[in-house]
């Protein structure tokens, strides 16, 4: 069971969250090619180590957050709000597993 710190609600169990995939991808624009869009949806790095990913605090405040996690050790380096405009999310850098 991972313990993930929601920037708003604090540390909660993994089962309050749902996973949303790689948070570093840049979404193509409407003018981009089908190939670019296909890569955006289908091509993933699958790193062994640090991974920046989206999670949603779906059973809590429903905010989407960005989590930096080690895929090998499950160490979580930081969590932060995904939305640049939602107020009062405090970026957390507290390692839960250090």
């Amino acid at each position: 069971m991972l313990r993930i710190e929601c920037p708003w609600c604090g540390v909660r169990n993994e089962d309050e969250f749902s996973y949303g995939g790689d948070a570093t991808l840049e979404r193509p624009s409407d003018d981009d090619s089908i190939e670019a869009w296909s890569r955006f949806v289908h091509t993933r790095k699958n790193p062994a180590g640090k991974h920046t990913e989206h999670w949603q605090h779906v059973n809590g405040c429903r905010a989407w957050i960005v989590v930096e996690r080690n895929t090998l050790t499950h160490e979580i380096y930081s969590t932060a709000p995904a939305s640049p405009i939602l107020p009062a999310g405090k970026k957390s850098t507290r390692g839960l597993n250090t």
Partner: peptide, 10 residues
Amino acid sequence: EYYHQTVWPE
């Protein structure tokens, strides 16, 4: 919520 918060916050 995903699109509103991460893709089109504007």
